[in-house]
Simulated scan of single mutants.
Amino acid sequence: MAEQTNSALKKTPLYDLHLELGAKMVPFAGYEMPVQYPLGVKKEHLQTREQAGLFDVSHMGQVMLTGAGAAAMLEALVPVDIIDLPVGKQRYAIFTNDQGGILDDLMVANWGDSLYVVVNAACKEQDIAHMRAHLPEGVTLEELDDRALIALQGPAAVTALSRLAPQVAEMVFMDSGRISIDGADCFISRSGYTGEDGYEISIPAGDADRLSRLLLAQPEVDFIGLGARDSLRLESGLCLYGHDLDTHTTPVEASLLWAISKCRRADGERAGGFPGADIILGQIASKDNSRKRVGMIGEGRAPVREGTELFDADDNRIGVVTSGTFGPSAGASIAMGYVSSAAAVMDSTIYAEVRGKKLPMRISKMPFVEQRYFRG
């Protein structure tokens, strides 16, 4: 695939602010995005774990579905309970294909009069087309391309944001709604992609720079780039679409059974009815899958990167790494990837081949660092 030229890349509403703050910009999902700031990836990572980090995620796709049949329409595309999602709550969901593979993962919030949906940047055009192709009469889809999206993450996120919008302190994990910040009409959820407590905040594009500066003026907050975002989410055992999840991987293989609602399973009142349901529900029933996503911790400090092949003690190839780094908070080389189901034995040792050497890795539970979502 040819590299995109800078002129072909899109810019988020915060692009000028990133440059002003000395960000190193890189191409990502069709946008120019900040990979790090002068603070550096490791310090940005630790800043988020210890205080609060502000992330520009405006490259993500934001969509509003409106109409009486919106929830039923969306539920027909995902193995998740959308119809009974409580008003003011958000839920993680997965678009599946007819083979049971994952087209994308997404967040869905129910605001009573509409559903607010956030999809991944690299998949947003296909996701929006997928939803449009299934719109019933009376349901409309509005792409919110005039809004920025930021994430304020870390144990001090609530302290910093509460100075600007005191009511956010009353929210718990996966609450979502419309809240004004300094006169701007924002959409806020208490959620995120770091494993820490925090918020995702959708802002009218014209207010994004001003509100971001207000947040950066709080003593707990620093801007954080894509580099630390990746190490934070990996420590927290969270998948990255296109790496740990793809169209050839089912939710069962991806160890995402928790994301398949009970009412959509074989014995549920709204069982099946989503693309690939027979395959996915069959895998759940048989408990017989050829491979499984697992976490791994290295015995040494050398990072084991995506694409590294994995072997058993008898030198049989058993799988591949899909994400890997040195975790600054975990204090170890960490990775996730897929291994044959027979090899997916907790605390057993497997071997990653790095530059001709077989490095021992211990199969581990995830997350590698405890998640600290605020559940009240």
Rank of each mutant, 00 (worst) to 15 (best):
A151P: 01
L161N: 02
S189E: 10
L214W: 01
D127Y: 04
A165E: 08
E143F: 14
I203P: 00
E142M: 06
S212Q: 10
P136V: 14
G177V: 06
E137N: 10
L152N: 07
S162P: 08
L216M: 12
P166M: 12
T159I: 10
E170R: 15
S212M: 09
E200R: 12
P136Q: 13
Q167D: 11
L216D: 15
Q126T: 11
A217C: 03
A165Q: 14
R190D: 09
A148F: 14
L149C: 09
L214C: 12
M131W: 12
L164F: 11
G183Q: 02
D127V: 06
G206T: 10
T159R: 09
A157H: 10
I128Y: 13
A122H: 13
P219G: 02
S202V: 12
G183Y: 00
P166T: 13
T194A: 00
G183N: 02
Y193H: 14
Q153Y: 05
F187M: 12
L144T: 11
A156H: 10
R178N: 15
A157R: 00
R210N: 06
R178P: 12
D127P: 05
D207Q: 14
C186D: 03
E200F: 06
M171A: 03
I203W: 02
A121K: 00
Q153D: 00
E196R: 05
T159K: 13
